[in-house]
Design a protein around this nucleic acid. Structure first.
Lengths: 265, 265
DNA sequence: GTACATTACTTTAGGCTGTAAGGAGTCGGC
DNA sequence: GCCGACTCCTTACAGCCTAAAGTAATGTAC
């Protein structure tokens, strides 16, 4: 269930994204609107948070608001636009102020951490393709915040944009494993350990020469067996560690870039 | 249209993934099978390549093979498992030998480049969630190849795994923009320039104080306007540049890690 | 040579999805 | 008090995946 963004009527979408959230009470004939765009978006986000993107249907949103699916089409052009709105409103949750007093690195770490949390709170964000930008205030807000923190490295803005993109990808990629590990456990009812155990038992049975065909992977598996036990679910811990490690790696790369840029001068 | 993986019957899935591709002719009563798992997977991949994941339906695959949708269920448990197979078979396309003679860095660059190409050839790969691993031969193959190249840095395997994860994320994240820029242009019939132009015109009209609210983004936009024109579509070029830059950044980080690990010794 | 078990495939059907079209209900202004 | 406008709902349709049952084809055993 991947959802594309930015496909619908451009003007209508942009007006919904950027328009005033509290619409002035309509003056004129007709029944008063019982719903509002914000209420619909909030309901949709609640559903996606609780039951995942797969459970998000126009009917489900309508029911949650005591209406039918078609009632929503008065406020929102279609499901695509609704998803755009959900995405952008959620990105807007990110806080905007990051203290740069203790250096760009700690600010970047804090920011990445908050992005991670945001995605864990709203795992369906990962199922909205970021390819065609939504161009809403939330997306701009995130970009601005990321750019501002990383521009404080002193690197030229034209390079900072790539750093931002890479950072965003590392966060998104690693949090995906964590988020969907939770989600899958909940949806399938099968705990992660059970799933993992069943699969690896099958692997051993069906592919006896696994270690021979993929020696490095096998070596990793055998070394990984000696990890300290933890309360945190395995895949989730794995994902968090990969996030932290990937981030450090990237920031080290940024430091190298700073040195290179200022050194020869 | 995001698709989850690894949800169906575990044993059946694993047998399909790892079993022999050419099934021995059955001995016993009953009509001879007219199809095969491999033929079905190939047809499905062809459809997804040509028309995108949205056009992949059991009916479509069946029709392409001259059968009804239900005929496929004799060979494949369901659509989920079919997607797993498509994903894993496609990852298996990656070539496995990378010369380490000119150093790990050039090998890693070549490997990342091939991963990029692979994803551009099969853009629907990006719509298959990598959260719950498929655990098929193709996935193992990719992991093994990545691990082998990056293990040649001399870093401990326990750290190499994170490098691999981060690299994979950077590739996946950046190629997504490129792939979906192509796809969107084809599906909507609207060229990327048109789309971009329409949206930014709307932005200027609806959000007059954009530069005030998001100064850093605005600064980037104005500086970006002075780029050299290119035949390559804008977003695609953008994505490729972000790929290359992100990769360099990451590999710089790896070099730092190598120095740190060997230096104090 | 015929009956039977087994398999490949089709048909039918049911429950989902998003949404186009048109009818019903409700309110403000005259 | 009624008209007209506007919101909301019902109906309907085309598409999706797939469960269940029916049909046709095949190979084996008697």
């Amino acid at each position: 269930m991947v959802v594309f963004a930015g496909q619908g009527d451009a003007r209508r979408s942009m007006e919904l994204l950027w328009g005033p959230r509290v619409v002035a009470p309509r003056t004129g004939p007709g029944p008063k609107p019982g719903l509002s765009v914000e209420a619909i978006v909030a309901a949709a986000i609640a559903i996606a948070d609780a039951e995942g993107m797969g459970a998000l249907s126009m009917r489900a949103v309508g029911e949650r608001l005591g209406r039918t699916a078609m009632a929503l089409y008065t406020y929102v052009p279609g499901k695509t636009e609704l998803v755009d709105l959900m995405y952008d409103r959620t990105l807007g949750e990110l806080s905007s102020s990051y203290s740069l007093s203790s250096g760009w690195r700690s600010a970047a770490l804090a920011l990445a951490g908050e992005l991670w949390d945001l995605h864990l709170r709203h795992p369906w964000l990962l199922q909205v393709s970021p390819a065609r930008p939504v161009l809403g205030p939330g997306e701009f807000h995130v970009q601005e915040t990321l750019l501002r923190v990383l521009a404080s490295t002193g690197l030229p803005l034209s390079r900072v944009r790539w750093v931002v993109a890479a950072l965003f990808n590392v966060v998104r990629g690693s949090v995906q494993a964590a988020a969907e590990s939770r989600q899958a456990a909940r949806e399938t009812g099968q705990s992660e350990e059970d799933w993992w155990y069943a699969r690896s038992a099958l692997l051993g049975e069906l592919v006896p020469d696994l270690a021979g065909r993929f020696p490095t992977v096998a070596r990793l598996g055998s070394e990984g067996a000696f990890e300290a036990p933890s309360d945190e679910p395995y895949l989730e811990r794995e994902a968090r560690l990969s996030f932290e490690a990937g981030l450090e790696l990237l920031l080290d790369g940024v430091e190298t870039a700073i040195v290179k840029a200022s050194g020869p001068r």
